[in-house]
Design a binder for these strands. Structure first.
Length: 696
DNA sequence: GCGATCAGTT
DNA sequence: CACAACTGATCGC
């Protein structure tokens, strides 16, 4: 919960995410996202009066945040005083002193924050320095490096101060499973249940807050069943979300709410009161998204925990974990870092103590730096697969080309874009066509060593005493505990909240909006209970024990699955690969490879991370090549252990390589050339000259 | 009756 | 037990 008071030292005439007390007198207001704890005072009479008197004071936020805010009539008075700024579009604003008429120009850049729809970070550049206010954020490891507007040329911008979401900035929250892992876990749990019969329904016990939308859209897209919610008017101009939610309760997936949710559930009723129309009682499971974290020295286990006969907890986090924050901060290396969130029982000083070592001022004071040519700019950490051919020249590059690329909008012209945006055409998500035409199926299993510590416990479930993830049926072949995943990431092009490869198209917020809801197909009340085509031909994984009691239909997601899950009909290795996870990079790589007639695939990847005393870690990726798939008839290399750098491995499996939130490509980054990829995969397969990977 | 604050809920 | 983020009760104007 934000404890930021609203003002930054460098730009004290600006108020962000706080609108009460002396924030009322600010020259400009900023709202990072539409959660109540960031909107204090935003509809108070004091602020209303200020707006009436000071006609030049505006609220700046993302177009989506504006849309969500204005959904509530309580904020309608803001209508003409909000200036939406497009994400990733540096925009100059003027802070006007109404008494003297003095003006101060500040360049504002909104960066996607990955916290909820419309959530952004604010980058301020002006005469008082460069300051980044993160708001609340969840960015995966490495995503900051792909934010072009945080860079000048090939280097990260010099950030004087950062105001940081420190919600989980404590080593005890060292790791939180990635968005993809969590999503896939939930998808498979839902699949295992709702495919049993039309009377099997799931209820997602979500809080009343924005942030679950990408879960809804992915579920709807995967199962062809819209998610039942209480309200959808806030999404009226967001067709990508709107077309996946419904107020029609005749669906198998519910995220509806009622003040006495739990009682409804106990009575085997959904909060919306939905009942079956043929007399057969509904079979309901509840899935409660909540944050699960894993300490530095613990191993990840399931992202799903069973908390009762028909209740589950699913890992879900709106905020970055400690290691994600660390990655973010140590990449940016600001001079100063200030926490926005102080957990109860902690003091500001405690959190600052954690942040300090990650700041530049700390490393500069502890290490004497030789700067023969004055102030050398830090070079950006370069990803393994990225080339940095001009690293040396970079040091002297005072005129980065990116500046030419950045379109700087002046105050006025920026606002025009909203009209375009509002009239932009809705791109309805299309069902995937001809899945059998997909390239060679490539799946990877990421196995996690069993976690002794489960940090996600809560005792608020009535059945909290139920053992946490304990397999009820023994895995048949493999004892590996796995996260169940499918390769669904592909083609989920929701511009806001869908899982998407970082290399995909840069988002256009405009596709989020349209002038009016098109036709009835979006808001209609048709029944979407019928199952998708995929499920009809079901190769449906047998997650269910043979017991008649289907309330124990799935032991837990860390029990081994007898069938791997893939949409691509890769039945060849059913029963071999217990669980699968495909990162978008691997998927992309696979597609590229397949294009180039490379007909083998990586079947399993085992990830180990070794924590070294200095706190640095090496990661070993154990890529097991499926011999059956190899064109070379090589089988002896199964289990070959490759030493890759942490960065590369993290990209592959550990760290949430793709995101639902759009991060533009790294400046200067290149997609590996297909021929190169093929070569790499061949090397991998044969086990030869692996070092070539590292040299690259 | 409204808003600020605190307590309670999930 | 903690956690986020909401809803509801209470108090003061």
């Amino acid at each position: 919960m934000s404890s930021f008071l609203g003002r930054m030292k460098e730009y004290p005439s600006i108020s962000i995410d706080r609108f009460d007390r002396d924030n009322v007198s600010a020259k400009a207001y900023f709202l990072s996202h539409c959660h109540k704890d960031h909107m204090k005072g935003l509809r108070a009479p004091l602020l209303k009066r200020r707006l009436a008197c000071s006609l030049k004071v505006y609220l700046y936020c993302s177009p989506v945040t504006k849309e969500l805010l204005l959904t509530s009539p309580k904020y309608a008075f803001w209508e003409n005083r909000i200036r939406p700024i497009e994400v990733d579009t540096p925009t100059q604003i003027s802070l006007v002193d109404e008494a003297t008429g003095e003006k101060e120009d500040v360049l504002i850049t909104l960066l996607p924050a990955g916290h909820c729809p419309g959530s952004v970070m604010f980058l301020f550049q002006g005469q008082n320095g460069t300051v980044l206010y993160t708001g609340d954020f969840r960015l995966a490891k490495g995503e900051v490096a792909r934010m072009e507007l945080l860079h000048s040329g090939n280097r990260v911008k010099e950030i004087d101060s950062i105001y940081l979401d420190t919600t989980f900035c404590d080593p005890k929250y060292f790791q939180i499973p990635s968005r993809e892992e969590c999503l896939y876990g939930i998808l498979e749990l839902v699949r295992s249940w709702i495919t049993l019969s039309p009377h099997h329904v799931v209820w997602l016990n979500c809080k009343a807050a924005y942030g679950y939308e990408y879960l809804f859209t992915n579920l709807s897209e995967e199962f062809g069943a819209k998610v039942h919610v209480n309200k959808l008017d806030m999404f009226k101009n967001m067709p990508e979300i709107l077309c996946h939610v419904t107020t029609n309760s005749r669906t198998q997936i519910h995220a509806c709410r009622h003040p006495s949710n739990e009682e409804f559930l106990r009575g085997n009723r959904l909060p919306c009161g939905m009942f079956s129309d043929d007399g057969v009682p509904l079979r309901i499971i509840s899935i409660k998204p909540s944050t699960m974290w894993f300490g530095e020295r613990t191993r990840k286990t399931s992202v799903i925990a069973r908390t009762g006969d028909s209740s589950y907890r699913a890992c879900f986090s709106f905020h970055s974990s400690y290691s994600e924050i660390k990655d973010f901060l140590s990449y940016i290396q600001p001079m100063n870092a200030y926490p926005n969130v102080i957990p109860v029982g902690k003091a500001v000083a405690d959190v600052e103590e954690i942040l300090k070592p990650l700041c530049r001022s700390f490393s500069e004071s502890s290490v004497i730096r030789y700067k023969p040519l004055g102030s050398l700019k830090r070079t950006r950490n370069v990803n393994l697969l990225e080339k940095d051919e001009d690293g040396i020249e970079d040091l002297f590059d005072d005129y980065p080309l990116t500046h030419l690329k950045q379109k700087i909008f002046r105050d006025n012209c920026c606002w025009k874009s909203e009209e375009n945006l509002l009239s932009a055409k809705c791109e309805h998500s299309k069902p995937r066509e001809n899945p059998s035409a997909s390239p060679v199926p490539v799946t990877t299993t990421v196995n996690f060593v069993e976690c002794e510590e489960s940090n996600g416990e809560e005792d608020d479930d009535e059945e909290a005493d139920a053992p946490l993830p304990v397999p009820e049926h023994k895995p048949s072949e493999s004892g590996a505990r796995s996260v169940v995943c499918t390769d669904l990431a592909e083609n989920k092009l929701d511009n806001c909240m869908h899982v998407k490869s970082a290399a995909d198209v840069v988002p256009k917020w405009s596709t989020f909006f349209k002038s009016a809801v098109e036709g009835d197909d979006v808001l209609d009340n048709e029944n979407h209970v019928e199952r998708s085509g995929d499920d009809k031909n079901s190769q449906s994984p047998k997650l269910i024990s043979d017991s008649d009691d289907d309330s124990t239909h799935i032991s837990s997601m860390n029990s081994s699955q007898s069938t791997h899950i893939s949409e691509q009909g890769s039945q060849g290795w059913d029963g071999q690969a217990d669980t699968v996870l495909v990162s978008s990079q691997e998927r992309r790589a696979a597609e590229m490879a397949s294009v180039h007639r490379s007909s083998f695939s990586i079947l399993e990847g085992d990830l180990h991370e070794e924590i070294l005393p200095e706190g640095q870690s090496t990661v070993k990726c154990n890529l097991i090549i499926d011999a059956k798939q190899l064109p070379f008839g090589v089988s002896k290399h199964q289990g070959e252990v490759l030493d890759l750098t942490k960065a590369e491995c993290a990209r592959k499996a550990d760290s949430q390589s793709s995101s639902d939130f759009e991060i533009p490509s790294s400046p200067g980054a290149e997609l590996p050339h297909p021929s190169k990829l093929q070569y790499l995969y061949q090397q991998l397969a044969t086990g030869d000259a692996i070092t070539a990977l590292q040299q690259d």
